[in-house]
Amino acid sequence: MKLTDEAIDELLKSMELEEPSMSFTRNVMEQAKLEMPPVTLRTKVDKRIIYSIAAVFLCAITTTVGYLFTNSHLEYSISNAQLNFSFAMEKSTYSLLLKALLFADLIIALFYFDKFLRRNLNSYR
């Protein structure tokens, strides 16, 4: 007589779990009381802080773009359409600040792109 795979599957599904002693939970909790209470390592970041930082960056970008446009000589003629942004970046007192800002933006963008890719790759695995 041979056992069928289905019979074994059914038997395994109906298998009962073992029961520990009645005092199991109490013993664990008594031991747990002797331990340091676990505390969350991740500090909760207030969303207002995140929004404030985002607002500062947005403001900085808008100001820089605004400054760029107000200091450019925009020329336009119908016969020969020409846009001339003759803004001299190197002469600007803001050039270093602008570069730093753009660099920070680039780092943040790369960081979030990396996080996005990791999350998507993990969900595919």
Binding site: L17, E19, F24, T25, V28, M29, A32, K33, P37
Partner: peptide, 17 residues
């Protein structure tokens, strides 16, 4: 921390098995 006992009760049978 007392709430941990509920987690123990929920999973003790399986962990013990």
């Amino acid at each position: 921390t007392a709430v941990y006992s509920e987690l123990v009760k929920r999973h003790q049978r399986f962990v013990f098995t």
